[in-house]
Amino acid sequence: MAQKLLEINKVGKSYGDSVILSNANLVINEGEFIALVGMSGGGKSTLLRMLAGLEETSAGSIIQEGNKIHGLNKEARVMFQEDRLLPWMNVTDNVLLDKKGKQAVAEAAQLLEQVGLSQYSTKIPTQLSGGQRQRVALARALMSHPRLLLLDEPLGALDALTRTKMQELIRKVCQDKAITTFLVTHDINEAVRMADRIAVIKNGTIWRIVENPYRGKESLGDKEKEVEISEEILAEILE
């Protein structure tokens, strides 16, 4: 049914003697929201960085629309665990980065409005809260119209309330813009709340992929299913 955007094909990664990943397989479809969960140190960030082209694979290949990813993946944009905003630039300039022109400025303003930061456009990052900073980082990532949005635990450092708000925001924006999203998280509830499919990383490979038809549904029955799936995944990881 859905178009295939990217295929992770028997990918392995090792640093020297230590093998981090081996024989990992995953297909990411156009427009879907996929989450990657697993133990800390399990190689989640490593896989994400390989998708971004910030790291080379040691074995296997990552094919994006028929091309093997080698070097920077220009279709993708990463939102890092830390916001990585430039502290010497104001919010608008951070969103714009190297983009110039009236149109770009207008678009940046529109994105800032979308993430609810219109009145902060001239502030510098140190004047913002953690959640606000991550929203700027989201706007910055969206500014380049990526086809693939790679999120590496961007909400890890936020408090529970802000976190929930951000989850909704990200989910909504990605859906509106039909951006394929790959979310790395250690919070299984977050994964279940946001993703269409959840990949579980274990023993240095993609162990299982869980379909999540109940994502974001409001009815009580579905909520219960969500909790069920979460517990199932957790049990699987800890097994």
């Binding site: 082209g53 920077l72 944009r77 890092f80 990585r84 380049s144």
Partner: peptide, 16 residues
Amino acid sequence: PKLIEMGKSYELSKKD
């Protein structure tokens, strides 16, 4: 180096 990596991954030219 994290900021530099960000810049590179956001396709900034060498000059930028």
